Simulated scan of single mutants.
Amino acid sequence: MSHKLFDIRNLEYYKSYNIFTGSKDNFRYKITPKDDLFFVEVWYGKLCYEKSEIAQQAEFVFDQEGFDKVAAWLEEQYQQKPIYIV
């Protein structure tokens, strides 16, 4: 599956339990593999993860189908982002 909006690496990257953070405009996200799940969080603004309020979070099964759902969920969250965030 092609991930249109985000460069979130590939499933192999996460198999070593690497954490990944990224952004597009003022939309920020963090993907954390934990046990047999992907734990995904999003926030808005210019501040780092530690200084931000998490707007949404979700969990997905740690396999290719779950990985594809992570990408789809991030794209959905990005499309729903508040327009007032500067």
Rank of each mutant, 00 (worst) to 15 (best):
S2P: 07
S2A: 10
K4D: 09
K4P: 02
L5I: 10
D7H: 10
D7A: 11
I8R: 05
I8E: 02
I8C: 02
I8G: 03
R9P: 00
R9D: 03
R9M: 12
R9L: 03
N10R: 03
N10Y: 02
N10P: 00
L11Y: 02
E12G: 06
Y13E: 00
Y14G: 01
Y14N: 02
Y14A: 05
K15S: 10
K15H: 06
K15E: 13
S16R: 12
S16A: 14
S16K: 14
Y17E: 07
Y17W: 11
N18E: 09
N18I: 03
N18A: 13
F20H: 13
F20G: 04
T21Y: 11
T21E: 15
T21L: 12
T21V: 11
G22Y: 00
G22M: 00
S23P: 01
S23L: 13
S23W: 14
S23C: 14
F27S: 00
F27Q: 00
R28M: 05
R28D: 03
Y29G: 06
K30H: 06
K30N: 07
I31V: 10
I31C: 01
I31R: 01
T32L: 11
P33W: 01
P33L: 07
D36Y: 00
L37S: 09
L37T: 07
F38H: 04
F39V: 09
E41D: 03
V42N: 00
W43P: 01
G45D: 08
L47E: 15
L47W: 11
C48R: 13
C48F: 12
Y49I: 04
E50N: 14
K51Y: 14
S52E: 11
S52Q: 10
S52H: 10
E53Y: 11
I54F: 09
I54L: 12
I54P: 02
I54N: 05
A55N: 09
A55Y: 05
Q56V: 08
Q56P: 05
A58P: 01
A58Y: 10
E59Q: 15
E59L: 09
E59T: 13
E59V: 08
E59A: 08
F60P: 08
V61N: 10
V61E: 13
D63E: 10
D63L: 06
D63G: 08
E65F: 01
E65C: 08
G66D: 06
G66K: 08
F67L: 02
F67T: 02
F67Y: 15
D68F: 04
D68I: 03
K69M: 11
V70Y: 05
V70K: 11
A71K: 07
A71R: 05
A71L: 05
A72S: 12
W73T: 02
W73N: 02
L74C: 10
L74N: 01
L74F: 09
E76I: 08
E76K: 14
Q77A: 15
Q80W: 06
K81M: 15
K81S: 15
I83W: 14
I83L: 15
Y84H: 11
Y84T: 05
V86Q: 12
V86N: 15
